[in-house]
Design a binder for these strands. Structure first.
Lengths: 214, 214
DNA sequence: ACCTTGATTGAACGCGCGTTTAATATTAAA
DNA sequence: TTTAATATTAAACGCGCGTTCAATCAAGGT
């Protein structure tokens, strides 16, 4: 209940209102990203956008139609951001958790990937393709280990790269971190070590016993 | 609607019925594992167990009480299985996708981890502890790379190890695999390579340019 | 000025949900 | 055999959901 009809700018749209539809869509992306698709209600989205539930349906046809519109919006946001600075991935990560809209978009993407519906598949397909191009062409000055199955390798690495975002809430709890940035900062050195050297020492000499550094 | 009251075995319980409660709980674990907690309905569980919806509530108090009972059941199943063959992890993985009850339990665990509620946190905490003990004591004859932050390292590796199960559905689609076993078999060599040697070649000589093998 | 068009809303509809309730069936204990 | 207790069910209750509907409002075209 912000205002009834009067606005200081006074330019209320006559019968066309792209501005209100945009506000509904932004609110929907945020609600979907926060609570997932099943738990998010049309009434909740309408309240977040300060409109009536009926108007949400009027503009997008149905809850699922609204979700599809959100899919397109987020996909365009993600892919254009990736295209803008493809080679500076670490900066892209920084930006993703700095720009709140991008952060919301990533949360939406994760919720969509984990949802059993087919809506989110294209995000994963696109990401695997991107990783596969990294494997072929290199990434941020690094070159990838080559394998006989680049597609399977790309899928594997894509899954690994997405994992921390999916379990962010669990990581917060187990690490005692306060926000996403702190959690990712904590993980970063171990991720870098894993990607550069692996997790297991390649000393297949004897069994259980291990010794300190020489 | 299997049978009304007559059974060939004829030993229907008088006023105590641990068998029916057990059947409801098994059905609940399976339903929760397949559809998640929000989408799973008490009516669906009751139908799967061939009882009335009211009986489910009568035995477990509420849907959330039933979920807690499932939590305990699955946790006990997972931890006892881990304790039984802790050192033979590859066999444990094989068994997890061979024994259907254990496979369902793993699906349940994944759904619980991804659910925003606090119910699943203990699974993650327990798993991070287990990984941390692997880092300290070694695992299947391998020794882990040591770091200044073993807890963060354990959390990182735990997240990585859980990731394929969480995105199994997306992997099926992108790899064209038919079942879980085939998907994991496809991923296995890349995971082993990642854990043993990492994903990036450690050739930090020059920037962007890359060349083929010598 | 009139009519058309579309934005917007408040109220309602129908449905499926978790849960409650009253009644019945079944068996151990008395 | 009666009694008390529990398992079990069919039906209903109340609620929140997505969606529909009729009415109102605001502006543009004619």
């Amino acid at each position: 209940m912000r205002s009834t009809t009067s606005d200081s700018n006074s330019r209320r749209s006559p019968n066309t209102s792209p501005e209100t539809a945009q506000r509904i869509l932004s609110a929907a992306v945020a609600e979907f990203a926060r609570h997932g698709f099943t738990k998010t209600t049309v009434r909740g989205i309408a309240a977040a956008a300060d409109v009536s539930p009926g108007l949400v349906i009027h503009h997008f046809g149905s809850k699922d139609g609204l979700r599809s519109a959100c899919d397109d919006h987020v996909f365009e946001l993600i892919t254009s951001a990736k295209a803008r600075n493809a080679e500076y991935a670490t900066m892209a990560v920084q930006m993703m958790f700095g720009d709140p809209e991008m952060s919301t978009a990533v949360d939406y993407l994760v919720k969509s990937l984990l949802d059993p519906s087919e809506h989110g598949q294209r995000y994963f397909d696109h990401y695997v393709d991107l990783v596969e191009s990294y494997i072929t062409d290199g990434f941020a000055g690094y070159t990838f280990r080559q394998s006989e199955d680049p597609h399977g390798q790309a899928a594997t690495i894509a899954v690994m790269a997405l994992a921390p975002a999916m379990l962010e809430h669990r990581l917060h709890s187990v690490l005692g971190t306060d926000d996403t940035a702190e959690t990712m900062t904590r993980l970063a050195p171990h991720l870098l070590d894993l990607y550069l050297h692996g997790a297991l020492e390649s000393v297949p000499d004897n069994s259980g016993l291990r010794d300190e550094e020489p």
